[in-house]
Design a protein around this nucleic acid. Sequence first.
DNA 1: TGCGCGATTCTC
DNA 2: AGAATCGCGCAT
Length: 186
Amino acid sequence: MIRAAYTCSDKQLATSFFARSTVTVARDLLGRRLVRCHGDGRMTEGMITETEAYDGFEDRASHAHRGMTRRNAVMFGPPGVIYLYLCYGVHWLLNITTREEGYPTAVLIRGMEGVSGPGRLTKHLELSGEENTLPLGRTAGLWVAAGNPVPEASVARSARVGVDYAGPEWSRMPWRFQVSGGGGAG
DNA sequence: TGCGCGATTCTC
DNA sequence: AGAATCGCGCAT
């Protein structure tokens, strides 16, 4: 039997990485490797290719824009924490909290290498409500590996998906980040 | 306690 | 274009 070994993805991003501006973190996560370590030793990992920022009370697209509730409480907590919620009663969506405690923010992980769509991503990584509220790390079996972001030329910005209900100002906010074809091998 | 809706995805 | 599917958030 082959025992899973931690290799280059062993070193994870420090909590301080997530303690910055939500939009900055969303952009800076592109190109980083998302690592999932299952209980039975299997590991799944891949480069993050798409993210979205949800920032503060004023952002009407954010779960937190009307204040703290049971569901979104984790967004008000410390940075680097996993926020998983059930969308449409069908799909789990993965977020990572950012900024300081008390200010509600999170980055939605929408896509990774070989996987498009936030609902398919959690299914691929075998994530569900169990990991909700856990800090990124070995205990959760999920973390972002230290590495390099993609170059600026490889970043595409656009409006967030599926948030028309937030009104024109907030639904048009260019807080969606994707790895585009440009920028060379980096 | 009840009701409408959603940070999506799959099928027709 | 419409269904799946259920917890959340707000109104009663």
